[in-house]
Design a protein around this nucleic acid. Sequence first.
DNA 1: CAGTGGTCTAGACCACGTG
DNA 2: ACGTGGTCTAGACCACTGC
Lengths: 255, 255
Amino acid sequence: MSNHPLTDRTGSDRSASSAAFSPLYQQIKGLLLQSLDHGEWKPGEAIPSELELAARFQVSQGTVRKAIDELAAENLLLRRQGKGTFVATHHEAKVRFRFLRLTPDDGKPPVSGSQILECRRVKAPADIAALLELRTADMVVNMRRLLSFDQIPTILDDIWLPGTVFRGLTTESLARYRGPLYGLFESEFGVSMVRAEEKIRAVAATKDQADLLKLGAGGPLLQVERVSYTYGDRPMEVRRGLYVTERFHYKNSLN
Amino acid sequence: MSNHPLTDRTGSDRSASSAAFSPLYQQIKGLLLQSLDHGEWKPGEAIPSELELAARFQVSQGTVRKAIDELAAENLLLRRQGKGTFVATHHEAKVRFRFLRLTPDDGKPPVSGSQILECRRVKAPADIAALLELRTADMVVNMRRLLSFDQIPTILDDIWLPGTVFRGLTTESLARYRGPLYGLFESEFGVSMVRAEEKIRAVAATKDQADLLKLGAGGPLLQVERVSYTYGDRPMEVRRGLYVTERFHYKNSLN
DNA sequence: CAGTGGTCTAGACCACGTG
DNA sequence: ACGTGGTCTAGACCACTGC
C-alpha cells in the first residue's frame, strides 16, 4: 500500500528514511487538537465517535483510537465506555483538584471561601510579560484574592492574565461567580487550561502577607509560582500563590 | 472463540457480566510485574522480546504490547526501538532527576557533594513504623546526610529504611559509594524504587538545622516528606528532607 | 541482513449505557 | 436493540540497531 494521502510522512513516496517522520496517529492527534483549540467541540461536550472520526480522516478506527488515547492520557479528553469521548472541563467536582495540590492533613474536605482583594488592568511588568510571551506595553489583568478553608485564611493568590483575552473581567463578575476560576475562564472567555508548570519555594511572610493570612510576620510560607498553558502551549496565566501549610500540605506523586 | 485459558475472566464461561472482570493484558501485566519483583530480569537488563513473551503467555503480540505499554508509561520499563525493552534503573544520568525535583534557578547543573552525618540501627519510632508498615519493635536504619550543590549546603535528609532488608548498610559503605542512593539500593540490596509520594510544607529552621545549612535560625525551609515504594506498593523508605530554596526551587508539572 | 520495537489495518467479540 | 468505547487477534509493513 502506498503512503497515506494525509501527508507524505517521509518526504519522498517510498520511505527515503529522511528527516521528519510523523506517524499517522500523531497527525490525527494534531488535527483533533486543532479542532479542540478552534472550539469545534466545547468543554464537557462529546466528540464524534471513533468510527465517525475514522471515516472523516480516512484512517482505521485503531489509528484514531491511538490518537485519542494520547489525548486522554494528557487529560485533554475523557473516555467513558458506552457513552463516548468528552472534552475535559474544569466544571467538575472530581477535576477540581487537578491543579490545586494543597490537601488537608486530616483528609477531610474543607469548606472553601474566596475573597477578591483587587482586580485591575495594568501594563505588564517585565517579568510577567516575559512569562506570558507579551510585550511590556501590553495590558494585563492583575487580580489578588484570599482563599479560606474552614474559615481559616490559607492561600493568597496574585494572578496575571493577558488583557486582550480577558476583557470584561472585573471584581464584580468575579465576586458573583461560584466555582473554580478555570471553569469561569472556560465558559466566559473560551480559555481551556490544559497544563501548568510550578516552581515551589519556602519564603518568610512579609508584614502585609502575614496580616492577610493572620500569621506572625516572618512565618514560613509555601510560595508557588505557576504558569498555565492552553492548547498549543500558549501561556495564559501567571499565578503566584502563598500557602499556609500548618493544617495543609502540598501533595505530589513521583513516578 | 472461548475464554482464554489464563484465567476465566468473567466467572462463568460465557460472559455472565459478573463481578470482577480483568482484561487479558492486565493479567499479563501482573505476570510481568511478578517477574520483575522476583528479579527474573534485573535493572538495566533487557526483558524478552514481545514475540517471545507472546509465545510464553500464549497470547498475541498486541496483547503483550499493551501490557508493556502500561509498564513503560509507569517508568518501570524502558522501550528502545530496534534494541529491546529494558528494566528501568536508577543508574543513569537521565533518570537521576526523576525523584529529585529540586532544580537550580539558573538552570546550570550544579556540582553535587554528599556528607553522611549519621547512620545507625534503631527501633522504629511509631510514625516511621506506620509509614513503613512495620511494628514498632522492628529495627530500622536511620541515616542523616547533608547534600551540597556547588559547595553550598542545600539539602538535609533524614532517611529511614526497614532494617531486615537493608542489613549491612553502614556509614563506611555509604561514604565509599558514589552515585544516587537509589542506585545503591538496587545493586546492593535488590530494592527498586518505583514510585513515591511527597508531602511538602514550608517550615522555620531550628537552631541545629540552621547551623548545618549555614542559615539564620528561623529561616524558611522547604520540608519534603517522602515515602518510596517498590513493586507491589510496598513502602521501603521514609525520607524527610529540608531544602534551602534560595538558589533552587522545587519543580512540578501539572497535567 | 536479521531482530527489535513502532505503525496501520480489518474484523470479531465484549462490556457499558441508554433507550 | 443499538451505539459507544474496550479487548483481542492476525498479518503486513516501517524504522531503528547492530552484526
